[in-house]
Every structure is written in C-alpha cells, then in structure tokens.
Nucleic acid binder design. Sequence first.
RNA 1: GCGCCCAUAGCUCAAUUGGAUAGAGCGUUUGACUACGAAUCAAAAGGCUAGAGGUUCAAUUCCUCUUGGGCGCGCCA
Length: 553
Amino acid sequence: MIKQKITTALSNVVVEYLESKGIAESVNFTVEVPPKNIDADFATNVAMIIAKKVKISPRVVAQGIINIISKKFSNLIEKADFATAGFINFYVKNNVLYTELKVILKERNKYGSMTANNKKKVLVEFVSANPTGPLHIGHGRGAAIGDSISRILKYLGYNVSKEYYLNDVGNQMLVLANSVEVRYKQLKGEKIELPADYYQGECMVNIAKRLIAEGKSFEEVDFRREAVKDILKTIKEDLKDFAVEFDSWFSEMSIVVVKDKEGKSEVDRACQYLLKKGDAYEKDDVLWLASTKFGDDKDRVLKRSDGRYTYLASDVAYHRSKFKRGFQKLVNFWGADHHGYVARIQACVQMLDFNKENLDIILYQFVSLVRNGRPVVMSTRSGAFIALKSVIDEIGRDACRFFFLLRAPDSQLEFDLELAKKHSNENPVFYVQYVNARCNSILKESKKRDDLNSNDNEKIDFDLLNSKEERTLIKQLAAFCDTLALSEKTMSPHHFTGYLIGLADSYHKFYEKCRVLTNDTALACARLKLTEGVMIIIQTGLGLLGISSPDKM
RNA sequence: GCGCCCAUAGCUCAAUUGGAUAGAGCGUUUGACUACGAAUCAAAAGGCUAGAGGUUCAAUUCCUCUUGGGCGCGCCA
C-alpha cells in the first residue's frame, strides 16, 4: 500500500508541475522498488517521461518535481533526490512504514483485501480434464494455478465461481464405454483382446470388477454412465487431496442431450441464435461458424453433414451459458495444446455480444516428466502416465502445489520425480513455512516473560524499529499489496511464490541481525509486533496459494 | 508448409510487463549454533540473456530474420 501512496502523491505533483508549464496532457509513469545497490525506498521514471515530452532536461524536470513533492508531501517523503540515470529516488518517512505495520496488525488476514471490485461475478474454469482416467501431473499444474488465482480474485473482492467443464459425451465416451465393456467380458472369461486404441488404464479393469461384484448383468449395464461415475469420483478425491474444490461441475451432456419443452437443446438454441445473427451459415449440408469475421484463420464446422454437432458447438453453447448465468468476467485455464482453439473461442464470445477484454484465456505449458533422466511420455490412453495422486503422496501437497506455482504458466516445466523426492527437504516451500514456525516459536517463548504482555498497539514504540533490516522487512510486508495487483493483472499466482521467498529471506536476515527477545522490554515488544506482522502475511500469502502454515515443522 | 509458446549461471527457473550493477534454489568451495528453531545465516565461484540486425534517454522484455526445442493445424474431443 505504501507504493500506492507514493504513486498517488506523485500523480498529484505531476499534474501541478505540468500545469505550471502550461501542459494539459497527462503522462504515464511507474513507481518501483529500485535495485539492491540503490538504498532508496522507491524510484520513479517520471522525469525522463516528461523531459522527452517537453524537451527539458530530465535533471531540471526532476528538480521541479522534487521541490513540489518535498513541500507538499513532507509527511510522506523524508528525502527525494535525482539519480544520474534520470530516476527520482524517494526515501519514505519511517512513520509511513509504522503506520502500514499497524494496518497489517489491525486488518490481519484481510490486509490488502478489497471490496472495490464490487463483487463482480467471475467464472474461473480450469482442469476440465476428460473423465477417461485419473488426473495426471499436467492437470495438477492447471489445478494449482486455477485454484490459486480463484483464491486471489476472491481476496480482491470478486465474486468467484470455480467450474469444471465435464466432457461427458462424444467419441471419447464411446471409446471409454467400449473399453470397460471389453474388460467386463474378459473378466467373464471371454477370450477377446483389448484394441490398441482403447483406454489401457488399470482403472477400466477396476470399474468392470465393481460391476461384476455388484452382480450387474451385461444387458442392464450402462457402461458409459458407470465408467464416468467411477472416474469422476476418483477425480474429485484427487482434487480434494490437492485442496481444490469446485463450485460447479458443468456437464456437456446437459447442453447437448437435455431438451427443453420444444425439443431443443442448448446447443440447438445457441446455433439458432448465431444463424439468426448471421454469424453462422449453412453450406454443403454443414453449419459453419463464421469465425473469420473475428480474426480466425478459417470458418469452423458447428454441425456435421450427418447432423451431429461438433465439440465446438458444445463450447459455443457452454460459453453462452456462462453469460446467461450472469458472469461479467471469464477466466479459462487451458493446457497449451489447446492454443489453436483460442481464436475461435474469442470469436465466439464476441458473436455472443461479450466484450473480448472480459475473457482471459491463460495457457499453461506442459509439464515434461523425467524420471532418472529419462523422459516419461504422458498419454491417458497408453496408461503410462504419472498420476497426480502418486506425486502428492510422494512429495506432499504443499510442496507439490508450491512447485507448480513457482513458474510462470507459459514456461515449460521439467519435473524430475527423483529430484523432487530427493530435495523435498530443501524445497523452497519449507523455507517459507519455516519462517512461520520460527515466529510461532518466538511468540511462544515471549509468553514466558511478564514484561512482554502488552497487546496494545498504541503503547508500542514502533520508532525503535529503525535498523536497515527492520525497514526492509516492513517494506517487504507492504509489498504484499503490489503482489496481489500484479497477480491480478497477469492472472498468474507465480508472483506470490517469489514474493514469499523474498519475505522469508528478509525475516531470516532480520532474525540473525536483530534479536527479538532482548532485555530491552520496549524494543522486544516492538520486534514482537513486527514478528506478528510477518506471520500474518506469510499465513495469508500461503493461504492464497492453498498451502498450509504449520506452527511446528 | 502455416500458426502459437519458449530459449537467461553446470541444472531447474525468476526478473515488479521498457528501467539503474539480470536474481533465487539445487550443485560446488569456505565460515557461523553454551540466549528467541542451523529446514538458518555470512561469503566465494558461476552470465556476450541462443545468434544477427532494428526501434529509444533506456531492451532479457517490443519489431524483423536465423538457429534450436515444445505444441497445434479434423465434419476428433
């Protein structure tokens, strides 16, 4: 929040400066934390931007800005100076830092949360893996990212719904049903081979075993329904183990198979709508989506010549349903193999009169699995994949989530199982969690001393927190808000893992340099408050990533 | 052939979306526990950001080309 204060003050000053020069234009500038070698708290590039616009040297502009801000915001700025590169560096008053710390102590796990987004309804769709087997590690990445972003958006005041789109109709379901059927027959003693293009996974056998155990005869069994039921159950359990829970499971069947009073499905309705608008047209016995109108390479088929709809038609109806349910913002997390699909869905939402800006499609690159240096091929069909569950069991939920959230979605990720296992004790997640455990231990220790019981923030002398380590730590805490903003802007939670590692780093350094439980009561009390603030932020931050903060490790 | 994504330390990845001397972890080398947790800290080594041009006060970031990898390109889902 401190950065925000500087930005606001600076905007004010810039307007005044430009007016004094008779310029009406506004300028875009940034405020940021300077690199380590500069000891200022914040820096801005505004002098360089203005200088270019008004053709005055950056130094002169900077001096003008510095004069105004020093006078007008002396409560905020301790000192401001011009750096040779053209930046203006700011040193904020210690009081500003202490005020921020007090806000954290007061707001606790609501610090930085907002109501400003006015409960805007947003739908986050992720995982949406086909129900043809247990989730594998690639789905895990999507699950971790989508779930964390949902938590972050909720924290920022959005009304978030998490949805799983279930492809429970179509060819794959046919293959699935047939696969279980063959297994069923095999178990009954029939001598038949499982075709190579059927699902080979062990779970097909288990489903068949269950059906036989329940005494279901071949004639009465709906293999598709039974298979989906079992697999879905497994998927839900896996997700629960991963701390991911969905608000809704949207069945494709509900928009394809289910008909209204007039015998029309939602897909029928959606296609009808597009046809009427002229965004779909019939040609050669085929119904086409005129997606080229909105930047796609070519028009796409909605309804085949044999009268069956394509997957795209379902998706059009599905997105239409999202709007009909009143969502104002859509976020879709897709595996990178779906990138060819982005253009047509963007086209389709525009045809449905939705602003393209309110649809975010985030592609996450594949997780390539390596075991003992040898690549592991991931294919649900071959059955030779690594289940998410086995990885969670192996390295733990927290470490697994943190690992996935460490990287930007668009970087391909190499996951060496042996390595992950080997270094599980040195995983950065423990580095962060350790801070919480350490703080907890200090607080517990402090309870043994009668002179440290003051819980009243007003009686604490925060001025005593004036070392370099302490200032750095408080600034770091305040940067929590910037991290929230950045994550929202990029729709990626990976900024948070980096932030938390940095915060942990600052605390460990503070710990080495500044003893918390000193004989000086006033100082000990102040440092305990700082420690408490760190715990609040660590716990809240890890919470946004769906990761626990154990008291002891 | 066309399109999307990526290329940064020995390895896995960051870099506040165009900012100052490009940072972490692992691995390597060295040091620190008889006061709050050593799952920690201090220090060293490691880089022509794949290559070549361009845009500007400023490029890992934006544009073009080349090379190398991943993934798509169906009346499959």
